[in-house]
Nucleic acid binder design. Sequence first.
RNA 1: GGCGGCGUACCCAAGUGGUUAAGGGAGCAGUCUGCAAAACUGUCAUUCAGCGGUUCAACUCCGCUCGCCGCCUCCA
Length: 481
Amino acid sequence: MLRINNTLTRKKEPLKLQKPGEVSLYVCGATVYDDCHIGHARSAIIFDVMRNYLEYKGLSVRYVKNYTDVDDKIINRAAKEKRTWREVADEFIVAYERDMRRLGVKSPTVAPKATDHIPEMIQLIEGLIKKGMAYAVAGDVYFEVNAFEAYGKLSHRNLDDLRAGARVEVDERKKNPLDFALWKNSKPGEPTWESPWGRGRPGWHIECSAMGMKHLGETFDLHGGGEDLVFPHHENEVAQSEAFTGKNFATCWIHHSFVTLDQEKMSKSLGNFFTVDQIFKKSSQFPETVVSEVLRFYLLSTHYRSPIDFSNESLKVAKSGLDNFYVLFQKIDELSVDAVSVAEDPSLEKYQARFEAAMDDDFNTARAIGTLQELRAAANQFLKQGEYKEAILLGKRLRALGKVLGFFRLTANNWRYQSWELALEKPEGRLDDEKIQALISERNLARQSKNWGKSDEIRKKLADAGVIIEDRPDGTTRVKR
RNA sequence: GGCGGCGUACCCAAGUGGUUAAGGGAGCAGUCUGCAAAACUGUCAUUCAGCGGUUCAACUCCGCUCGCCGCCUCCA
């Protein structure tokens, strides 16, 4: 049974669904004002894996991940670059989608944009005013936190503790300094829409409530995002949504931890981040799928609620971990045994069971990867012992389970075996298949005449071009690029 | 100041109130090999930041200390 850590209760709870067999999942996506960095990649990959696993378990997942395309940062960037806010937002939506594609992240069921939901937001705000939960002041509308008695239940804080004013600018027009804007009177040059309170634009939190309710209904099973969104973003979403509907906004809240750099949170404001695009550009001699799997392997090798430190060394380790799997696949591919004729062997079920037990325990991908590695070792043992059918079966199972995590999307032939250090060096002249084969034939002739000097020279030449060769016992040569 | 998290071998990282503390990387030894690589085998924490307490039994529960980090302002 799948259990998930719920921020609301701070406990692992069994997944509870409103409709059997169907999961509604809402994730706060990106505010599109810049390229996304590894931290965003972590978020996207974690929820992609959760979604995959839910589907693997036979559930149908309706996954909504939004774009916040109206926001101060977008407006500021546009002003700085003398462009329209729309141009900026569109540019980074395209960039985000490009990065998701490269990362192998599947598209959500719906990817709504905030600006396509202005009428829904206005409706929500009007409802809140009518209920006495919000008030308008000179073109702005604020949510009144004192009117919502459960305020703080998600982030486990109470209004007294929050001691407003400590870090928030006090606005005399607010009844409570923690009251937050649902609607903002806009200044000249800013995006604006007609509203009952004059021309203006939405506040930060309301878009998620509006989009979520529209695409998933008033209550969703799962709502996720980064740890830093717990307060105030998600707390405010809970307040405004539940004040409006009188129902729970989400049954279970999932929050993941950060990617750090030298132990410090990677963030735009600190400037200590690597963008996804940078990583792909820096390692352009590897096919994108290879880089993508390396990033995934690295990001999933730590549980999602623990911070993970980013370094080239970690990527190197992830790369060699994947190499070992692909070497196995390559060896299995070389077998002449017909896989189709191989019957399932129930004794191999245990590996799958362990994988599932790990994933059922709050999506413990680190442990799940451990079970894949055990499975790999077992398959290698079978190969060593000449039990090819068992090896093939395990290989198939390995690929199937790896798929849930987004691994093994390549054939063994298309994987690249160079170690990760090469990724940060300039690309060497590449050899095409024909040249490689010619060199190998030449080397094999040299080997036959025991001309080891020449043989090693050719090996070196191939290695310099990024081609690794291994001699098999039968005298043939395995090529690893 | 308030709330929360973390500290496991050289590195990364799981984990449990009680027979062997996953797995990976690196290292070392061996099998194999012209060499190399891969794979396989063995080895690599009597110990889980420190100190107390609860318990028949704790690394796992409680308290304190030290260190690191996050949120309380935009942030995945």
